[in-house]
Nucleic acid binder design. Structure first.
Lengths: 166, 166
DNA sequence: GCGATATGTGTTATATTATTACATATCGAA
DNA sequence: TTCGATATGTAATAATATAACACATATCGC
């Protein structure tokens, strides 16, 4: 079922977009059913747009995508849907970009550790428990009680770094 | 000279603000002199306001502070000064708050790892090389070439966690 | 010093991101 | 079916950030 999932944190450039979007929507729907959450058409639509981009997308870009029919949407519509999707782990906010991205592993508990390529703007999700644990441990040493970690790493993905010295 | 520096990442509540602001300004001035950078009155003023707050401060709050005389300042004035201060490591931007904070250790190379207390809004700076190295290593394994790390940890500082179960 | 060039600052306007406040609609349970 | 909670529509505005251009000041070669 997850056969097209990438081996590394980054999606393979040639992977099957359509399938991974469908998977993400299905997974969200199922999780919502299980947890008694309302996966409304609006929320589904926003999640679909986010996944469609397959890279960080701003709230107002989402609004633009929603405007393609005859009806216009207003910011709160999108922000509320995003709040829901972020709260329940279907979407992550990339703080350093003020943008949103679909979560590749919405199942378990995870902190969201992102590798952001400055060239192609693609984002890989690391979600390494060892990193999370180390940070929690070091924070605790400083007397700090962790509730949430924001980890965003800028740099170049393999492909873009490769192209650089071509 | 650094005798009043806190033992942990967090400044002690009773520490000497005035002295630590003065220290920070002196250190910035000296670094700029050494590196041939122009520590102009404007930049000094902005850095002083940032340190004065001694917690994350937004660009427009800085603007307000500058408006206390008879002359008003415009956003680019502050943002340009902040750009300079951030670029040279005197100030960090806290991405998850869209705010800025004085850097406690502007000397060496460091990534900026922040512990942000959700109750008192104080921020501790961790700057643990072990964390930075682990992240770089894991990223490399994913074929990612790191240029910058953003690490912001939300939670409760020792004092606020203590007060919570009082 | 003198002029050319780069760097810094002032100012106006505007772009981008996000929220408040309140009205209406829909859902789900008693 | 009606009540309360949750979700959505809509208008206005707040908060954050940048573009573009004019002017001032510093720095460096001469």
């Amino acid at each position: 079922m997850a056969a097209h999932k990438p081996a590394t944190a980054f999606p393979a450039p040639e992977h099957d977009h359509t399938a991974c979007i469908a998977d993400a929507l299905d997974a969200a729907e199922q999780t919502c059913r299980q947890d008694g959450l309302r996966f409304t058409p609006l929320r589904r639509r926003v999640l679909e747009i986010v996944w469609n981009r397959h890279a960080p997308i701003g709230a107002y870009d989402i609004l633009d995508e929603m405007r393609d029919g005859n009806r216009a949407a207003a910011p709160p519509t999108v922000y509320r849907a995003l709040d829901f999707l972020v709260e329940h782990g279907f979407v992550h906010k990339i703080e350093s970009l003020n943008a949103f991205i679909g979560c590749g592993k919405p199942d378990g508990d995870h902190v969201g550790q992102f590798l952001i390529c400055g060239a192609c703007r693609q984002v890989g999700e690391l979600d390494d428990p060892e990193i999370a644990r180390l940070i929690a441990k070091k924070a605790k040493t400083a007397g700090f009680n962790v509730s949430h970690q924001t980890i965003e790493v800028m740099g170049l993905c393999r492909d873009c770094a490769g192209n650089a010295h071509a």
